[in-house]
Design a binder for these strands. Structure first.
Lengths: 224, 224
DNA sequence: ATCCTTTTTCAGGAAGGAATGAAGAGATGG
DNA sequence: CCATCTCTTCATTCCTTCCTGAAAAAGGAT
């Protein structure tokens, strides 16, 4: 069974504890955040969350805004907790990309059932979009990369390229293969473009750049 | 190369062609069906499909119903293509046994990636090009050579040459044959070039260099 | 068997070329 | 406008190839 990691966001400590208790009891790993700002930081710095459960009303950054921020980069499922009076905002939320609503007060059974349904749907049981190798942590869902815990900024192509390398760790990849794997199917440009991106990627990876090996006369290989 | 057979079901010919093109380009064998009924017939009469990709909205028999029919008898992976507006039906589909969703419009990259992921998951092992003989371990995929567990660095040609030797272990190989097997077909240089590479290869192989025997007046032979 | 000649292979090195890395200028798209 | 992507150019590194001379193997003659 996958130990799914869930981020619970609420300004009321009592409510957080309640939700956390239910989820932990159901076998999930839970991290708490007291407001949207903290949640945002945790989400993008720590990464690896399979689900976010957030309250609507919060200081600093409310649930809507948090959803918006997360959706900029990630497709992680989001469950929103609403008080009865806020129900009419649901439509608003679905447009923003909220996956599910749970009205307060809720029963623990409902909460866990919804969480399980969503995780089953999203993950299909496995294939958590998190790749981990050689001290590099790549979260495809959240679109973040960490090296030894420190997040690094990658451009879109760089991210895709690194993901491709990590998915094919240990395999020798020709430039053609890489082009087919990372670039659009109708790209018929210069294979040397791969070189450029590898160079930039290596630079941003610091020491770990050495993990991308050059295979002379052949291509590249990621070797953790 | 695994020639997986995929059934693509969609009522729009344009979409079918698009999907087919991507998959064929990725090395798959594709059969098309214009609606659920036709797909059903093909699936159960022809058989042998490794994966089904189907649209949701179709005349006669839609994607859900097709899934239900197939699931009566088969566990073949099913990928469903959905328009944005149908997204909320996903839960429904997972219960029916759909393995994956891809929202239209999608990028070919996504499509092929999902297909590969699913086939990898389902089919399990693929043929790894690993040669093993006389304490020498040669992995064509990873482009790695190990002698008694210790990795050694070979240049491109050296690697190809050793692979050729190992694939033809025990056979006497003339220089001509080796040139044809390892060098480009349009190479018309000196056959003595083989000697040089054998020399370097032997040097890098240490003791094991003796496994490449000289056949005087004829050529070489790899004898583990 | 030993020696010599011829032929073939081996060893080292030099020349040339090909592949890669670095840096930067257009192009492109949000 | 800025970040990103792509392509070009130049410099560098590394590999391939070929050349020379030496060593080894085969065969014949003494």
């Amino acid at each position: 069974m996958n130990e799914h990691k869930i981020l619970v966001v609420d300004d009321e400590a009592r409510m957080r504890k309640l939700v956390k208790d239910f989820l932990v009891r159901a076998g999930y790993s839970v991290v708490e955040a007291a407001d949207g700002m903290e949640a945002c930081d945790l989400f993008f710095d720590t990464g690896g969350f399979d689900l976010v459960i957030t309250d609507v009303m919060m200081p600093k950054l409310d649930g809507w805004e948090l959803t918006r921020q997360i959706r900029e980069y990630s497709k992680v499922p989001i469950i929103m907790l609403t008080a009865k009076s806020e129900e009419h905002d649901e439509l608003n939320g679905f447009e923003l990309g909220v996956d599910e609503y749970i009205a307060k007060p809720f029963s623990p059974k409902i909460l866990v059932a919804r969480v399980e349904a969503i995780l089953r749907r999203a993950g299909g049981g496995e294939a958590t979009d998190v790749l981990e190798a050689g001290g590099i942590h790549l979260d495809k869902g959240a679109h973040i990369v960490q090296i030894d815990g420190a997040p690094i900024d990658l451009s879109f192509k760089e991210f895709e390229l690194l993901a491709y390398f990590m998915e094919n760790a240990g395999l020798a990849l020709s430039r053609e293969k890489i082009l087919n794997g990372v670039w659009d199917y109708d790209y018929f440009g210069d294979a040397r473009t791969v070189d450029t991106h590898v160079k930039k990627l290596r630079a941003k990876m610091g020491d770990k750049g050495d993990l991308i090996k050059t295979i002379w006369g052949m291509g590249y290989k990621f070797e953790p």
